[in-house]
Design a protein around this nucleic acid. Sequence first.
DNA 1: TTCTGTGAATTTATTCACAGCA
DNA 2: TGCTGTGAATAAATTCACAGAA
Lengths: 225, 225
Amino acid sequence: MVKNSSPSKRKSIPEPTIARLPRYLRSFAQFSQSNQLVISSKELAAVSDINPAQVRKDLAYFGQFGQRGVGYDVKTLDEKMRGILGLNKSWRLALIGAGHLGTALLQYGGFAKAGFKVEAAFDVDPSKVGWELEGVKIWGTPAIRQVVREKKIEIGVIAVPASQAQRVADDLVDAGIRAILNFAPCALSVPKSVLVRGVDLASELEHLTYFLEKSSKSDKTKNSG
Amino acid sequence: MVKNSSPSKRKSIPEPTIARLPRYLRSFAQFSQSNQLVISSKELAAVSDINPAQVRKDLAYFGQFGQRGVGYDVKTLDEKMRGILGLNKSWRLALIGAGHLGTALLQYGGFAKAGFKVEAAFDVDPSKVGWELEGVKIWGTPAIRQVVREKKIEIGVIAVPASQAQRVADDLVDAGIRAILNFAPCALSVPKSVLVRGVDLASELEHLTYFLEKSSKSDKTKNSG
DNA sequence: TTCTGTGAATTTATTCACAGCA
DNA sequence: TGCTGTGAATAAATTCACAGAA
Protein backbone atom coordinates (compact mmCIF):
# COMPACT_ATOMS: atom_id res chain seq x y z
CA MET A 1 0.00 0.00 0.00
CA VAL A 2 2.65 2.51 1.13
CA LYS A 3 5.49 3.18 -1.29
CA ASN A 4 8.89 2.43 0.19
CA SER A 5 10.72 5.70 -0.30
CA SER A 6 12.35 6.52 3.04
CA PRO A 7 16.10 7.02 2.62
CA SER A 8 17.03 4.65 5.46
CA LYS A 9 15.43 1.71 3.70
CA ARG A 10 15.47 2.26 -0.03
CA LYS A 11 15.36 -1.52 -0.47
CA SER A 12 13.88 -3.72 2.19
CA ILE A 13 16.50 -5.66 4.12
CA PRO A 14 16.58 -9.44 3.66
CA GLU A 15 15.70 -11.43 6.78
CA PRO A 16 18.93 -13.46 6.70
CA THR A 17 20.89 -10.22 6.72
CA ILE A 18 19.15 -9.10 9.91
CA ALA A 19 19.81 -12.49 11.47
CA ARG A 20 23.52 -12.07 10.77
CA LEU A 21 23.89 -8.63 12.34
CA PRO A 22 24.13 -9.91 15.93
CA ARG A 23 26.90 -12.25 14.79
CA TYR A 24 28.84 -9.34 13.37
CA LEU A 25 28.37 -7.50 16.63
CA ARG A 26 30.04 -10.38 18.53
CA SER A 27 32.94 -10.24 16.09
CA PHE A 28 33.43 -6.50 16.59
CA ALA A 29 33.71 -7.10 20.33
CA GLN A 30 36.41 -9.69 19.64
CA PHE A 31 38.41 -7.37 17.38
CA SER A 32 38.01 -4.43 19.76
CA GLN A 33 39.41 -6.51 22.59
CA SER A 34 42.54 -7.30 20.61
CA ASN A 35 42.88 -3.57 19.78
CA GLN A 36 42.36 -4.06 16.08
CA LEU A 37 40.89 -0.77 14.85
CA VAL A 38 40.13 -1.70 11.25
CA ILE A 39 38.73 -4.90 9.74
CA SER A 40 38.26 -6.03 6.17
CA SER A 41 35.20 -7.88 4.94
CA LYS A 42 37.53 -10.85 4.48
CA GLU A 43 38.53 -10.94 8.14
CA LEU A 44 34.99 -10.42 9.32
CA ALA A 45 33.89 -13.17 6.96
CA ALA A 46 36.54 -15.56 8.25
CA VAL A 47 35.53 -15.29 11.90
CA SER A 48 31.81 -15.33 11.09
CA ASP A 49 32.09 -18.19 8.59
CA ILE A 50 30.39 -16.18 5.85
CA ASN A 51 31.37 -15.22 2.30
CA PRO A 52 33.19 -11.82 2.14
CA ALA A 53 30.88 -10.54 -0.60
CA GLN A 54 27.97 -11.39 1.67
CA VAL A 55 29.48 -9.37 4.49
CA ARG A 56 29.96 -6.34 2.25
CA LYS A 57 26.47 -6.61 0.86
CA ASP A 58 24.96 -6.97 4.34
CA LEU A 59 26.74 -3.88 5.64
CA ALA A 60 26.05 -1.87 2.49
CA TYR A 61 22.30 -2.22 2.99
CA PHE A 62 22.62 0.28 5.83
CA GLY A 63 25.06 2.76 4.31
CA GLN A 64 28.65 3.14 3.12
CA PHE A 65 30.64 2.51 6.26
CA GLY A 66 33.87 1.26 4.77
CA GLN A 67 36.84 2.87 3.13
CA ARG A 68 38.00 1.43 -0.16
CA GLY A 69 41.43 -0.08 -0.03
CA VAL A 70 41.36 0.01 3.78
CA GLY A 71 38.38 -1.69 5.37
CA TYR A 72 35.89 -0.81 8.07
CA ASP A 73 36.58 1.11 11.27
CA VAL A 74 35.56 -1.33 14.00
CA LYS A 75 34.24 1.27 16.43
CA THR A 76 32.18 3.13 13.83
CA LEU A 77 30.75 -0.07 12.45
CA ASP A 78 29.92 -1.33 15.94
CA GLU A 79 28.06 1.88 16.74
CA LYS A 80 26.20 1.91 13.45
CA MET A 81 25.11 -1.71 13.78
CA ARG A 82 24.00 -1.18 17.38
CA GLY A 83 21.91 1.73 16.19
CA ILE A 84 20.36 -0.36 13.45
CA LEU A 85 19.51 -3.15 15.88
CA GLY A 86 17.98 -0.60 18.25
CA LEU A 87 20.56 -1.23 20.96
CA ASN A 88 21.25 2.43 21.77
CA LYS A 89 18.30 2.54 24.08
CA SER A 90 17.67 0.38 27.12
CA TRP A 91 14.73 -1.93 26.43
CA ARG A 92 12.37 -2.78 29.28
CA LEU A 93 11.82 -6.52 29.67
CA ALA A 94 9.55 -8.70 31.73
CA LEU A 95 10.51 -12.26 32.54
CA ILE A 96 7.62 -14.62 32.99
CA GLY A 97 8.66 -17.81 34.73
CA ALA A 98 11.28 -17.60 37.47
CA GLY A 99 12.36 -21.23 37.28
CA HIS A 100 15.80 -22.44 36.26
CA LEU A 101 15.50 -21.17 32.71
CA GLY A 102 14.34 -17.76 33.90
CA THR A 103 17.16 -17.61 36.42
CA ALA A 104 19.65 -18.65 33.77
CA LEU A 105 18.44 -15.85 31.53
CA LEU A 106 18.83 -13.31 34.33
CA GLN A 107 22.29 -14.52 35.31
CA TYR A 108 23.59 -14.78 31.82
CA GLY A 109 25.23 -11.41 31.35
CA GLY A 110 24.34 -11.15 27.67
CA PHE A 111 21.06 -9.35 28.23
CA ALA A 112 22.37 -6.53 30.39
CA LYS A 113 25.42 -6.11 28.15
CA ALA A 114 23.24 -5.66 25.08
CA GLY A 115 21.13 -3.00 26.83
CA PHE A 116 18.22 -5.06 28.07
CA LYS A 117 16.85 -4.25 31.49
CA VAL A 118 14.64 -6.81 33.19
CA GLU A 119 12.12 -4.64 35.07
CA ALA A 120 10.03 -7.38 36.63
CA ALA A 121 9.78 -11.15 36.94
CA PHE A 122 6.61 -13.19 37.41
CA ASP A 123 5.90 -16.68 38.69
CA VAL A 124 2.88 -18.78 39.65
CA ASP A 125 4.67 -20.22 42.68
CA PRO A 126 3.47 -18.21 45.73
CA SER A 127 6.63 -19.10 47.65
CA LYS A 128 8.67 -17.12 45.13
CA VAL A 129 6.43 -14.05 45.00
CA GLY A 130 7.80 -11.03 46.84
CA TRP A 131 11.40 -12.24 46.69
CA GLU A 132 14.09 -10.95 44.39
CA LEU A 133 16.06 -12.83 41.77
CA GLU A 134 19.31 -11.23 40.63
CA GLY A 135 17.96 -7.92 41.89
CA VAL A 136 14.64 -8.28 40.07
CA LYS A 137 11.42 -8.39 42.06
CA ILE A 138 9.16 -11.40 41.55
CA TRP A 139 5.41 -10.82 41.21
CA GLY A 140 2.54 -13.27 41.02
CA THR A 141 1.29 -13.97 37.52
CA PRO A 142 -2.06 -12.18 38.15
CA ALA A 143 -0.02 -8.95 38.42
CA ILE A 144 1.28 -9.21 34.86
CA ARG A 145 -1.25 -6.86 33.27
CA GLN A 146 -0.90 -4.10 35.82
CA VAL A 147 2.87 -4.20 36.27
CA VAL A 148 3.67 -4.48 32.57
CA ARG A 149 1.43 -1.52 31.86
CA GLU A 150 2.74 0.62 34.73
CA LYS A 151 6.39 -0.05 34.02
CA LYS A 152 5.84 0.45 30.29
CA ILE A 153 7.47 -2.90 29.55
CA GLU A 154 8.08 -3.45 25.85
CA ILE A 155 9.30 -7.04 25.57
CA GLY A 156 8.12 -10.15 27.38
CA VAL A 157 10.30 -13.22 27.76
CA ILE A 158 8.20 -16.33 28.31
CA ALA A 159 9.98 -19.07 30.23
CA VAL A 160 7.01 -21.05 31.55
CA PRO A 161 5.78 -24.56 30.63
CA ALA A 162 3.95 -24.85 27.30
CA SER A 163 0.62 -25.36 29.07
CA GLN A 164 0.75 -21.86 30.54
CA ALA A 165 2.38 -20.02 27.66
CA GLN A 166 -0.72 -18.92 25.74
CA ARG A 167 -2.41 -17.55 28.87
CA VAL A 168 0.70 -15.56 29.73
CA ALA A 169 0.91 -14.28 26.15
CA ASP A 170 -2.72 -13.12 26.31
CA ASP A 171 -2.00 -11.15 29.49
CA LEU A 172 1.08 -9.57 27.95
CA VAL A 173 -0.86 -8.59 24.85
CA ASP A 174 -3.62 -7.08 26.99
CA ALA A 175 -1.03 -5.05 28.82
CA GLY A 176 0.22 -3.61 25.54
CA ILE A 177 3.45 -5.55 25.06
CA ARG A 178 5.20 -4.98 21.72
CA ALA A 179 7.22 -8.17 21.38
CA ILE A 180 7.57 -11.63 22.90
CA LEU A 181 10.49 -14.03 23.07
CA ASN A 182 8.97 -17.45 23.66
CA PHE A 183 10.97 -20.33 25.13
CA ALA A 184 7.92 -22.56 25.56
CA PRO A 185 7.79 -25.30 22.92
CA CYS A 186 4.50 -24.20 21.39
CA ALA A 187 3.12 -21.69 18.92
CA LEU A 188 1.48 -18.56 20.34
CA SER A 189 -1.49 -16.83 18.83
CA VAL A 190 -1.25 -13.04 19.15
CA PRO A 191 -2.44 -10.04 17.14
CA LYS A 192 -0.13 -9.40 14.24
CA SER A 193 0.94 -6.07 15.69
CA VAL A 194 2.86 -8.05 18.32
CA LEU A 195 6.16 -9.59 17.28
CA VAL A 196 6.87 -13.13 18.42
CA ARG A 197 10.09 -15.05 18.19
CA GLY A 198 10.22 -18.63 19.38
CA VAL A 199 13.28 -20.48 20.57
CA ASP A 200 12.63 -24.20 20.73
CA LEU A 201 15.46 -26.05 22.42
CA ALA A 202 14.34 -29.53 21.36
CA SER A 203 14.03 -28.42 17.72
CA GLU A 204 17.66 -27.45 17.70
CA LEU A 205 18.66 -30.92 18.84
CA GLU A 206 16.36 -32.51 16.28
CA HIS A 207 18.02 -30.48 13.56
CA LEU A 208 21.37 -31.96 14.65
CA THR A 209 20.08 -35.52 14.76
CA TYR A 210 18.72 -35.19 11.23
CA PHE A 211 22.28 -34.78 9.99
CA LEU A 212 23.69 -37.42 12.33
CA GLU A 213 21.06 -39.90 11.14
CA LYS A 214 21.73 -39.05 7.53
CA SER A 215 25.48 -39.55 7.88
CA SER A 216 24.96 -42.89 9.68
CA LYS A 217 22.77 -44.02 6.80
CA SER A 218 25.25 -43.04 4.12
CA ASP A 219 28.00 -44.90 6.04
CA LYS A 220 25.89 -48.04 5.87
CA THR A 221 25.24 -47.47 2.17
CA LYS A 222 28.98 -47.28 1.61
CA ASN A 223 29.54 -50.71 3.19
CA SER A 224 26.61 -52.45 1.55
CA GLY A 225 27.27 -50.92 -1.86
CA MET B 1 32.30 -35.42 -6.82
CA VAL B 2 29.95 -38.28 -5.94
CA LYS B 3 26.75 -38.48 -7.95
CA ASN B 4 23.67 -38.23 -5.76
CA SER B 5 21.67 -41.26 -6.76
CA SER B 6 20.51 -42.90 -3.52
CA PRO B 7 16.73 -43.32 -3.54
CA SER B 8 16.20 -41.64 -0.16
CA LYS B 9 17.72 -38.36 -1.31
CA ARG B 10 17.35 -38.06 -5.06
CA LYS B 11 17.52 -34.29 -4.59
CA SER B 12 19.26 -32.80 -1.59
CA ILE B 13 16.84 -31.44 0.97
CA PRO B 14 16.75 -27.65 1.44
CA GLU B 15 17.94 -26.46 4.84
CA PRO B 16 14.72 -24.51 5.54
CA THR B 17 12.75 -27.69 4.98
CA ILE B 18 14.76 -29.51 7.64
CA ALA B 19 14.29 -26.60 10.02
CA ARG B 20 10.52 -26.87 9.57
CA LEU B 21 10.28 -30.60 10.31
CA PRO B 22 10.38 -30.21 14.12
CA ARG B 23 7.53 -27.70 13.82
CA TYR B 24 5.44 -30.21 11.92
CA LEU B 25 6.19 -32.77 14.62
CA ARG B 26 4.73 -30.44 17.28
CA SER B 27 1.61 -30.02 15.16
CA PHE B 28 1.13 -33.78 14.79
CA ALA B 29 1.20 -34.10 18.58
CA GLN B 30 -1.52 -31.47 18.78
CA PHE B 31 -3.74 -33.20 16.24
CA SER B 32 -3.16 -36.61 17.79
CA GLN B 33 -4.27 -35.28 21.16
CA SER B 34 -7.55 -34.10 19.74
CA ASN B 35 -8.01 -37.51 18.07
CA GLN B 36 -7.85 -36.14 14.55
CA LEU B 37 -6.54 -39.00 12.44
CA VAL B 38 -6.09 -37.24 9.12
CA ILE B 39 -4.79 -33.77 8.29
CA SER B 40 -4.64 -31.83 5.06
CA SER B 41 -1.70 -29.70 4.03
CA LYS B 42 -4.02 -26.74 4.48
CA GLU B 43 -4.69 -27.52 8.14
CA LEU B 44 -1.05 -28.27 8.84
CA ALA B 45 -0.14 -25.03 7.11
CA ALA B 46 -2.63 -23.03 9.17
CA VAL B 47 -1.30 -24.14 12.54
CA SER B 48 2.33 -23.89 11.44
CA ASP B 49 1.84 -20.52 9.73
CA ILE B 50 3.28 -21.81 6.45
CA ASN B 51 1.95 -21.91 2.87
CA PRO B 52 0.09 -25.19 2.08
CA ALA B 53 2.14 -25.78 -1.08
CA GLN B 54 5.25 -25.44 1.01
CA VAL B 55 3.97 -28.08 3.42
CA ARG B 56 3.25 -30.50 0.58
CA LYS B 57 6.63 -29.88 -1.02
CA ASP B 58 8.43 -30.34 2.29
CA LEU B 59 6.74 -33.66 2.97
CA ALA B 60 7.11 -34.87 -0.60
CA TYR B 61 10.90 -34.60 -0.40
CA PHE B 62 10.82 -37.69 1.77
CA GLY B 63 8.22 -39.78 -0.05
CA GLN B 64 4.56 -39.91 -0.94
CA PHE B 65 2.85 -40.06 2.43
CA GLY B 66 -0.49 -38.54 1.56
CA GLN B 67 -3.62 -39.76 -0.11
CA ARG B 68 -5.08 -37.59 -2.87
CA GLY B 69 -8.47 -36.19 -2.06
CA VAL B 70 -8.04 -37.18 1.60
CA GLY B 71 -4.90 -35.88 3.25
CA TYR B 72 -2.18 -37.33 5.44
CA ASP B 73 -2.60 -39.96 8.14
CA VAL B 74 -1.32 -38.22 11.26
CA LYS B 75 0.20 -41.29 12.86
CA THR B 76 1.99 -42.46 9.72
CA LEU B 77 3.33 -39.00 9.02
CA ASP B 78 4.49 -38.61 12.61
CA GLU B 79 6.38 -41.90 12.47
CA LYS B 80 7.93 -41.13 9.09
CA MET B 81 9.08 -37.68 10.17
CA ARG B 82 10.53 -39.04 13.42
CA GLY B 83 12.47 -41.57 11.38
CA ILE B 84 13.77 -38.86 9.09
CA LEU B 85 14.87 -36.72 12.02
CA GLY B 86 16.57 -39.74 13.56
CA LEU B 87 14.29 -39.80 16.59
CA ASN B 88 13.64 -43.56 16.56
CA LYS B 89 16.79 -44.20 18.50
CA SER B 90 17.72 -42.79 21.88
CA TRP B 91 20.60 -40.36 21.48
CA ARG B 92 23.23 -40.19 24.20
CA LEU B 93 23.88 -36.65 25.43
CA ALA B 94 26.37 -35.01 27.74
CA LEU B 95 25.52 -31.75 29.45
CA ILE B 96 28.48 -29.53 30.19
CA GLY B 97 27.66 -26.88 32.74
CA ALA B 98 25.29 -27.74 35.57
CA GLY B 99 24.23 -24.18 36.36
CA HIS B 100 20.74 -22.79 35.98
CA LEU B 101 20.69 -23.18 32.22
CA GLY B 102 21.92 -26.77 32.45
CA THR B 103 19.35 -27.55 35.12
CA ALA B 104 16.62 -25.94 33.04
CA LEU B 105 17.58 -28.11 30.08
CA LEU B 106 17.43 -31.26 32.25
CA GLN B 107 14.10 -30.35 33.80
CA TYR B 108 12.48 -29.25 30.61
CA GLY B 109 10.80 -32.45 29.50
CA GLY B 110 11.28 -31.82 25.80
CA PHE B 111 14.59 -33.66 25.60
CA ALA B 112 13.45 -36.92 27.13
CA LYS B 113 10.21 -36.83 25.19
CA ALA B 114 12.07 -36.52 21.89
CA GLY B 115 14.29 -39.49 22.74
CA PHE B 116 17.34 -37.76 24.15
CA LYS B 117 19.02 -39.35 27.14
CA VAL B 118 21.42 -37.25 29.18
CA GLU B 119 24.06 -39.76 30.24
CA ALA B 120 26.33 -37.45 32.21
CA ALA B 121 26.64 -33.87 33.38
CA PHE B 122 29.87 -31.97 34.02
CA ASP B 123 30.75 -28.87 36.02
CA VAL B 124 33.87 -27.04 37.17
CA ASP B 125 32.39 -26.38 40.61
CA PRO B 126 33.83 -29.07 42.96
CA SER B 127 30.88 -28.69 45.33
CA LYS B 128 28.58 -30.03 42.61
CA VAL B 129 30.77 -32.95 41.55
CA GLY B 130 29.55 -36.35 42.76
CA TRP B 131 25.95 -35.17 43.22
CA GLU B 132 23.07 -35.88 40.96
CA LEU B 133 20.88 -33.45 39.06
CA GLU B 134 17.51 -34.76 37.86
CA GLY B 135 18.92 -38.27 38.15
CA VAL B 136 22.06 -37.45 36.18
CA LYS B 137 25.46 -37.80 37.82
CA ILE B 138 27.70 -34.71 37.84
CA TRP B 139 31.38 -35.17 37.03
CA GLY B 140 34.26 -32.71 37.15
CA THR B 141 35.19 -31.19 33.81
CA PRO B 142 38.55 -33.04 33.67
CA ALA B 143 36.51 -36.25 33.36
CA ILE B 144 34.89 -35.17 30.10
CA ARG B 145 37.23 -37.04 27.76
CA GLN B 146 37.08 -40.33 29.61
CA VAL B 147 33.37 -40.38 30.42
CA VAL B 148 32.24 -39.23 26.99
CA ARG B 149 34.36 -41.92 25.39
CA GLU B 150 33.31 -44.69 27.78
CA LYS B 151 29.62 -43.90 27.58
CA LYS B 152 29.80 -43.50 23.82
CA ILE B 153 28.16 -40.09 24.05
CA GLU B 154 27.21 -38.67 20.67
CA ILE B 155 26.01 -35.14 21.35
CA GLY B 156 27.40 -32.54 23.74
CA VAL B 157 25.30 -29.68 25.04
CA ILE B 158 27.48 -26.78 26.11
CA ALA B 159 25.92 -24.58 28.79
CA VAL B 160 29.02 -22.95 30.28
CA PRO B 161 30.20 -19.31 30.10
CA ALA B 162 31.71 -18.22 26.79
CA SER B 163 35.20 -18.11 28.29
CA GLN B 164 35.16 -21.87 28.91
CA ALA B 165 33.25 -22.99 25.84
CA GLN B 166 36.14 -23.55 23.43
CA ARG B 167 38.11 -25.60 25.97
CA VAL B 168 35.06 -27.77 26.61
CA ALA B 169 34.51 -28.17 22.87
CA ASP B 170 38.11 -29.30 22.41
CA ASP B 171 37.67 -31.97 25.08
CA LEU B 172 34.43 -33.17 23.50
CA VAL B 173 36.07 -33.37 20.08
CA ASP B 174 39.01 -35.31 21.54
CA ALA B 175 36.56 -37.75 23.07
CA GLY B 176 35.00 -38.38 19.68
CA ILE B 177 31.76 -36.42 19.97
CA ARG B 178 29.71 -36.18 16.77
CA ALA B 179 27.69 -33.02 17.38
CA ILE B 180 27.53 -30.03 19.71
CA LEU B 181 24.66 -27.78 20.72
CA ASN B 182 26.28 -24.59 21.96
CA PHE B 183 24.47 -22.16 24.26
CA ALA B 184 27.57 -20.08 24.93
CA PRO B 185 27.48 -16.78 23.00
CA CYS B 186 30.60 -17.44 20.96
CA ALA B 187 31.71 -19.28 17.86
CA LEU B 188 33.43 -22.64 18.33
CA SER B 189 36.22 -23.93 16.18
CA VAL B 190 35.97 -27.68 15.62
CA PRO B 191 36.92 -30.11 12.83
CA LYS B 192 34.34 -30.07 10.09
CA SER B 193 33.37 -33.67 10.79
CA VAL B 194 31.74 -32.39 14.00
CA LEU B 195 28.37 -30.66 13.67
CA VAL B 196 27.83 -27.50 15.67
CA ARG B 197 24.62 -25.61 16.22
CA GLY B 198 24.67 -22.43 18.23
CA VAL B 199 21.74 -20.96 20.11
CA ASP B 200 22.43 -17.37 21.09
CA LEU B 201 19.79 -16.00 23.41
CA ALA B 202 20.86 -12.36 23.13
CA SER B 203 20.81 -12.56 19.32
CA GLU B 204 17.17 -13.53 19.40
CA LEU B 205 16.33 -10.44 21.44
CA GLU B 206 18.38 -8.27 19.14
CA HIS B 207 16.47 -9.61 16.18
CA LEU B 208 13.25 -8.47 17.88
CA THR B 209 14.58 -5.02 18.71
CA TYR B 210 15.60 -4.48 15.10
CA PHE B 211 11.94 -4.62 14.13
CA LEU B 212 10.78 -2.63 17.16
CA GLU B 213 13.31 0.08 16.37
CA LYS B 214 12.29 0.12 12.73
CA SER B 215 8.60 0.48 13.54
CA SER B 216 9.34 3.28 16.03
CA LYS B 217 11.27 5.10 13.31
CA SER B 218 8.52 4.75 10.72
CA ASP B 219 6.01 6.10 13.27
CA LYS B 220 8.14 9.21 13.64
CA THR B 221 8.44 9.52 9.87
CA LYS B 222 4.67 9.44 9.61
CA ASN B 223 4.30 12.41 12.00
CA SER B 224 7.06 14.53 10.52
CA GLY B 225 6.03 13.89 6.94
C1' DT C 1 47.70 -2.26 -4.82
C1' DT C 2 44.03 -3.26 -1.80
C1' DC C 3 39.60 -3.43 -0.47
C1' DT C 4 34.75 -1.48 -0.77
C1' DG C 5 30.29 -1.12 -3.06
C1' DT C 6 27.28 -2.94 -6.27
C1' DG C 7 25.14 -4.46 -10.73
C1' DA C 8 24.77 -9.01 -13.02
C1' DA C 9 24.78 -13.96 -12.83
C1' DT C 10 23.79 -17.78 -10.32
C1' DT C 11 21.83 -20.58 -6.96
C1' DT C 12 18.29 -21.59 -3.80
C1' DA C 13 13.68 -21.33 -1.93
C1' DT C 14 8.82 -20.33 -2.33
C1' DT C 15 4.54 -20.12 -4.56
C1' DC C 16 1.50 -21.04 -8.34
C1' DA C 17 -1.24 -23.89 -10.96
C1' DC C 18 -2.77 -27.98 -12.50
C1' DA C 19 -2.60 -33.10 -13.69
C1' DG C 20 -3.91 -37.25 -11.45
C1' DC C 21 -5.99 -40.08 -8.07
C1' DA C 22 -9.64 -41.30 -4.39
C1' DT D 1 -15.29 -32.74 -5.58
C1' DG D 2 -11.08 -32.36 -2.67
C1' DC D 3 -6.64 -32.99 -1.92
C1' DT D 4 -1.84 -34.58 -3.05
C1' DG D 5 2.37 -34.36 -5.77
C1' DT D 6 5.08 -31.79 -8.76
C1' DG D 7 6.81 -29.26 -12.88
C1' DA D 8 6.96 -24.32 -14.08
C1' DA D 9 7.07 -19.56 -12.68
C1' DT D 10 8.43 -16.39 -9.44
C1' DA D 11 10.87 -14.46 -5.72
C1' DA D 12 14.72 -14.18 -2.75
C1' DA D 13 19.38 -14.81 -1.38
C1' DT D 14 24.06 -15.61 -2.45
C1' DT D 15 28.10 -15.24 -5.03
C1' DC D 16 30.77 -13.44 -8.79
C1' DA D 17 33.30 -10.01 -10.88
C1' DC D 18 34.71 -5.64 -11.57
C1' DA D 19 34.54 -0.39 -11.43
C1' DG D 20 36.14 3.08 -8.40
C1' DA D 21 38.25 5.17 -4.34
C1' DA D 22 42.29 5.45 -0.98
